[in-house]
């Protein structure tokens, strides 16, 4: 395991991609930055530009307008880049499955590393999901 890939697991810069979510998962995700959870302890910070991102946090059903944009955002991120699908909508479209505006779940558009179900998932669950993504990177090498 090289130095930079070791550092990668300890300094994930997160970028938030919302493709048609109801904002509930987004609020739970922002909880991670608050004093109670404080993910900066583990080196996770939110970044403004997707070029800097190591971790895409995707929320929402992927609707017809969102799908090409999600694909574009993923292609813009510099690799290696982990993807975590947050909420039932992102994992499998939830109650919107088969709706006229839902296109495909996230994993049909871009490769997903970890799924975090819930409507919305608790911040603890999101933390566990990110941890699982890190474990996945570690076990690969």
């Amino acid at each position: 395991m090289s130095i930079s890939s070791k550092a990668f697991t300890k300094s994930l810069w997160a970028f938030h991609v919302s493709v048609g979510s109801c904002n509930n998962c987004d609020i739970e995700m922002l909880d991670l930055l608050t004093p109670r959870f404080d993910v900066e302890r583990f080196g996770i910070v939110l970044v403004g530009s997707v070029r800097h991102a190591d971790l895409l946090l995707v929320t929402g059903i992927v609707n017809r307008k969102g799908a090409p944009r999600l694909k574009k955002v993923y292609e813009q991120a510099s690799k290696p880049c982990l993807v975590v699908a947050i909420g039932v909508c992102a994992c499998g479209q939830g109650i919107f499955r088969g709706g006229y505006n839902s296109y495909d779940p996230v994993d049909k558009v871009i490769p997903v590393d970890v799924y975090v179900p819930g409507c919305p998932p608790k911040p603890e669950a999101i933390l566990l999901g990110i941890n699982k993504a890190i474990e996945k990177v570690k076990s690969k090498k």
Partner: peptide, 8 residues
């Protein structure tokens, strides 16, 4: 952060 960025 620095070493991670070098490897990206």
């Amino acid at each position: 952060d620095f070493f991670k960025l070098l490897g990206k």
